[in-house]
Amino acid sequence: MTKHNGTNDVALMGIPLDTHSSYLQGPAFGPARIREALINGAANLTAEDGTDLGTETRWKDSGDLEVFEMRGAAAIDKIYEGTKERLDNGLRLLSLGGDHSVANPVIQAHADHYEGLNVLHIDAHPDLYDTQDIGHFGHGCPFARLMETGKVKRLVQVGIRTLNKHQREQAERFGVEITDMRSWHSDWTVKFDGPVYMSLDLDALDPAFAPGVSHFEPGGLSTREVLGLINRFEGRLIGADIVELNPHRDPYGMTAMVAAKFVKDIAARLLRTA
């Protein structure tokens, strides 16, 4: 992977930020660990559909945004501007967090770039809090901030298993479509009309498959089920993020390898629609 911007290229963008985490720091080191897992020699760069990122000339790395240890509106604004610049240069982005707060400005930039944007959010948590002790930009708030803009056509959440009263009320307020784990079945899918952005929090997976996260939420998805979600939904994928890898809690780099696996399949899907 080389650092380069070009029309219709698909590129990684690292967002090393975890100052909006409510419980543990560590996700700021996620982008580096996922990149290491991609090229560590234990696996090749081929996605399951046969796309080889090692030989694909449209697959790039646009580097990291310089947001480490930033916080609040200054961090959000810098992430928005960095995302917008890359989108304006013709890139399709696969962003690596970082805590989930980074999704708010990244998706807002996509919503400004793609009219009628839909969002598929895969997570254990709905992240619809109005605020947290760490403020309105906490990693439990990004989808509340996003839906307040009125720029997202449709928000579909799957994998949820922590929906409390406040967030249920928020979901009703914003018209969020939620499939929680009690209602999940292995052939679940969804159809979108228009461009789709995917936001994937690694704690959507059961901790047995992805222990390297800050918030363990038993009863989640398997790696294979998430791969099915990535490849099965109907709609035109135009961007995505993978967030909340915490290397401090990741034995033997297991979760980083899961994230790298998702990178390959998401990148392959983005390349098919570039």
Rank of each mutant, 00 (worst) to 15 (best):
A28K: 14
A28H: 02
F29H: 07
F29V: 12
F29W: 10
P31N: 11
P31D: 08
A32W: 01
R33S: 15
R33D: 05
R33H: 13
I34D: 01
E36L: 05
E36H: 11
E36K: 02
L38A: 14
G41Q: 07
A42L: 15
A43M: 10
A43T: 12
A43C: 11
L45I: 11
L45S: 01
T46R: 09
T46I: 12
T46E: 12
A47R: 03
A47F: 14
E48G: 13
D49M: 05
D49S: 11
G50N: 00
G50F: 00
G50P: 06
T51F: 03
T51Q: 08
T51W: 04
D52Q: 02
D52V: 04
D52M: 03
L53A: 12
L53N: 09
G54T: 08
T55S: 10
T55E: 04
E56Y: 10
R58G: 04
R58K: 11
R58A: 13
R58V: 10
W59H: 06
W59G: 01
W59T: 12
W59F: 13
K60T: 14
K60V: 10
D61A: 14
S62Q: 01
G63R: 14
G63S: 13
D64H: 06
D64G: 13
D64Y: 07
L65V: 11
L65C: 09
E66C: 13
V67P: 00
V67H: 01
E69T: 12
E69Q: 15
M70W: 08
R71Y: 14
R71C: 14
R71A: 14
G72H: 12
G72K: 13
A73N: 09
A73G: 11
A73K: 13
A74S: 05
A74N: 02
A74E: 00
A75R: 00
I76Q: 09
I76D: 00
D77F: 06
D77V: 06
D77M: 09
D77C: 07
I79R: 03
Y80P: 00
Y80K: 04
Y80N: 03
Y80D: 05
E81I: 05
E81C: 03
E81M: 03
G82C: 00
G82P: 04
T83F: 13
T83K: 06
K84L: 11
K84T: 15
K84R: 03
E85Y: 09
R86S: 07
L87K: 12
D88K: 10
D88T: 07
D88H: 04
D88M: 02
D88Y: 08
N89H: 08
N89M: 08
G90Q: 01
L91K: 12
L91Q: 10
L91D: 08
R92S: 12
R92P: 02
R92Y: 09
L93K: 10
L93M: 07
L94E: 13
S95A: 13
L96I: 07
G97N: 04
G98I: 02
G98V: 10
H100L: 03
S101M: 04
S101V: 04
S101K: 04
V102Y: 01
V102S: 00
A103F: 00
N104Q: 14
P105Q: 07
P105K: 03
P105E: 01
I107Q: 07
Q108P: 09
A109D: 06
A109F: 02
A109W: 04
H110F: 12
H110I: 00
H110Y: 07
A111N: 15
A111T: 14
A111K: 05
A111R: 05
A111F: 04
A111S: 15
D112R: 02
H113S: 11
H113T: 14
Y114E: 06
Y114N: 07
